Amino acid sequence: MPKSEPFERHADRYDDWFEANPDAYRSEVEALRRLLPEPGFGVEIGVGSGRFASPLGMQVGVDPASEMLAHARDRGIDVVKGVAEALPFPADTFDTALIVTTICFVDDISRTITEARRVLRPDGSLVIGYIDEDSPVGRRYREEKDDNPFYRDAEFVSTDELVDKLEGAGFSDFEFVQTIYQWPTEINGLEPIDEGYGEGSFVGIEAVR
């Protein structure tokens, strides 16, 4: 999976971003927490270093990058190597599936969403957190992607496009939160966390199977 290669090579650099931008990170976690008050038995798809799975109560994490999985394991996550488009779990396994800052790196967004729905129990929730491509941060990431080893091959998506794909996969009952109104390095303190989307650069969607 070519898009995972930078995460194998630069796992420590990826993880260090959260230490360098603690208030941006905290704002994203708290925004998603509003959609996840009681996650039950949860999996993060594209768990990375476990920076979201751990504070948000996900017990299991799947990722194609071994170096990332090592970090997530250190944060107490039960890790499994695999890809989002072919999850190594039986149907109807989880109460919650979480995908954070990963949807732009998968090879097939529609297949990823379909697989997430497959492994969810009836009435289970899929929560996706991402940088909206139409937002100020999203536009800047796209402009500078050639200079960033992580975003060089990323395919950013808008909220409207993502909702269309979720509806096409059979999800419904959407809830939205948004945060990150400044460039991450300029944030000092917790960013506002609001309902909806269209203003904040980081958007969270909850969708029900």
Results as ranks from 00 to 15, higher is better:
residue 62 V to D: 06
residue 137 V to N: 13
residue 90 P to G: 15
residue 78 D to V: 10
residue 69 L to W: 05
residue 72 A to G: 04
residue 22 P to N: 09
residue 1 M to F: 08
residue 26 R to P: 03
residue 206 E to T: 02
residue 105 F to C: 04
residue 5 E to V: 14
residue 8 E to Q: 14
residue 37 P to Y: 03
residue 183 W to L: 13
residue 115 E to V: 09
residue 5 E to L: 13
residue 26 R to V: 05
residue 152 R to K: 15
residue 181 Y to F: 14
residue 142 R to G: 06
residue 158 S to I: 02
residue 137 V to Q: 11
residue 192 P to K: 00
residue 202 F to L: 00
residue 191 E to I: 05
residue 19 E to H: 12
residue 204 G to V: 08
residue 103 I to V: 15
residue 179 T to D: 05
residue 178 Q to G: 07
residue 143 E to F: 04
residue 196 G to F: 04
residue 185 T to V: 13
residue 181 Y to S: 14
residue 80 V to Q: 10
residue 44 E to H: 05
residue 144 E to T: 15
residue 16 D to V: 06
residue 199 E to R: 14
residue 104 C to H: 10
residue 154 A to W: 04
residue 192 P to Q: 05
residue 22 P to I: 10
residue 7 F to M: 07
residue 89 F to L: 13
residue 128 I to W: 00
residue 47 V to N: 08
residue 156 F to K: 00
residue 132 D to S: 04
residue 192 P to H: 01
residue 131 I to E: 03
residue 103 I to Q: 10
residue 176 F to Y: 15
residue 179 T to M: 03
residue 128 I to C: 02
residue 160 D to V: 08
residue 27 S to R: 08
residue 44 E to R: 07
residue 126 L to T: 07
residue 123 D to P: 01
residue 156 F to H: 07
residue 26 R to N: 00
residue 17 W to D: 01
residue 192 P to N: 09
residue 19 E to A: 14
residue 107 D to T: 11
residue 143 E to L: 11
residue 53 A to M: 09
residue 31 A to T: 10
residue 9 R to S: 12
residue 136 P to F: 12
residue 151 Y to S: 13
residue 181 Y to T: 15
residue 101 T to F: 12
residue 33 R to C: 05
residue 103 I to P: 02
residue 33 R to Y: 05
residue 138 G to I: 03
residue 15 D to I: 08
residue 43 V to R: 09
residue 9 R to V: 10
residue 170 G to D: 06
residue 4 S to L: 05
residue 126 L to Q: 09
residue 56 L to I: 07
residue 139 R to W: 04
residue 32 L to E: 01
residue 3 K to S: 12
residue 152 R to T: 12
residue 157 V to G: 03
residue 162 L to K: 09
residue 207 A to R: 07
residue 163 V to W: 08
residue 88 P to Y: 13
residue 91 A to M: 09
residue 35 L to P: 12
residue 80 V to H: 15
